[in-house]
Design a protein around this nucleic acid. Structure first.
Lengths: 162, 162
DNA sequence: CTTGACATGTAATGCTATAACATATCAACA
DNA sequence: TGTTGATATGTTATAGCATTACATGTCAAG
C-alpha cells in the first residue's frame, strides 16, 4: 500500500473502512515486530482512530476509564508513548495532542495539516520537506534525528463559502 | 542585512555584537511599526537574547522578577506573546519554550535546529522547506497560514568527538 | 482634563506531563 | 514447573506549562 497523495481526512469517506484498515495494519505491524499491542494500547489506538482529530491525553484518558481502565494520567501517557514510539501514532505539538498514524509501518515524513476551524488533521507527504530540511541543516553542520512539521490553516471544507 | 547561510548559534562568535545587533534591529522595527516596546517587553527580549537557547516562560519570569517586575505568570506570558506576535521571538513547541528571533523584520520561514545535547537553537533558512510544504498541502486543498518546523538533533560541536 | 485604548498587577485556576514506587503479567529457561 | 528477569500496569503525588478574570495604572488624542 502506498500513501494517498490526497489524504482522506479532509474528504467524505467510509471511515469504518479507513480506520479499520489502519487498525489492521497496525496489528500486523505489531505482530511482525513482536510488539505487545495490549488491550489499553489497542483501545487507545482505536480511540484515536475514531476521528481525524488530535486528542489530548486527558481526553483519551476519559475514554479509557469509561472502558474500565484506570483513570490516572500515566495510563494514557504510557499507551500514547508506546504508540508514538512505534510509529502507530503521532504527537501534534502545536495542540499538545495525539493523532493516530494513518500509514503505520510505511516510511513517511509526515507533514501535519491542522485545520484551525474544524480541528481535523491530515497527514501529508513530507518527503520533499524532509529533503529541504536536510539541505537547510547541513550547511550548519547539524545532523537531524527527528522532526516536527506542522501547518495550521484551513481545510478545503472550511475554506469553502458557507 | 541578509540572513547568514550558516547561523552563528552553533559557532564561537562575539555574542555581545550578535545580541546587540538583534536588539537594535528589534528596536528599530518596533519604532517603525509604532509598537510599544515597553520595559518588560524589552527586558524579556534581552533575556532571550542572552543565549542561543530557548527559555521556558517560568524561567523568563524568574529573571523578570529579579529585575523588579511582578512575578505572576501572565507577566511573562504577555511579554512573550507580544514578542512572538510581532516577530521578535519564536515559540519552540517541542520544548514549550521561547527563543529570540535572530532576524526580526526580515521575511523568513524559520527552521529551528535544536541540539538535544547542548540545548542550543539555531534558526536556519526555511524558504525551500516552506515551498515544499506548500506543495504538500496544495493537493489536499489545504491553505496554510502558519507553520512550525523544528528539527531535533546534534549541533556540530556536540557531534564532534569529545 | 476627560476619555478610551492599551498595558500591567494580582489572584485563582486549569491543563499537560512526569517521577517514583508497588504490583502484576508473561515468556524464557533451568 | 518453578524461578527469574523483563515488561507492563496500578496508584499516589507532584511538577511544569498556560490561561481566565478582574482590578489598576498609564498615556496620548481630542
Amino acid at each position: 500500500m502506498t500513501i494517498d497523495p490526497v489524504p482522506l481526512a479532509f474528504s467524505e469517506h467510509d471511515h469504518e473502512t479507513c480506520s479499520g484498515g489502519v487498525l489492521a495494519q497496525a496489528g500486523a505491524l505489531a505482530a511482525s515486530r513482536g510488539l505487545r499491542l495490549t488491550p489499553v494500547r489497542r483501545r487507545t489506538l482505536e480511540i484515536l482512530l475514531e476521528s481525524h482529530r488530535a486528542m489530548g491525553a486527558y481526553e483519551v484518558l476519559e475514554r479509557l476509564s469509561a472502558d474500565g481502565f484506570a483513570k490516572q494520567p500515566p495510563v494514557a501517557y504510557r499507551a500514547l508513548e508506546f504508540l508514538v514510539e512505534n510509529g502507530l501514532a503521532h504527537r501534534i505539538r502545536r495542540l499538545n495532542a495525539f493523532a493516530a498514524c494513518m500509514h503505520p509501518g510505511e516510511r513517511h515524513s509526515p507533514v501535519f495539516l491542522i485545520c484551525k476551524s474544524c480541528d481535523h488533521i491530515a497527514e501529508a507527504q513530507g518527503a520533499h520537506v524532509a529533503t529541504a530540511l536536510e539541505a537547510a541543516a547541513t550547511p550548519a553542520g547539524f545532523s537531524i534525528e527527528r522532526t516536527n512539521v506542522e501547518a495550521l490553516g484551513l481545510c478545503p471544507a472550511c475554506a469553502a463559502p458557507a
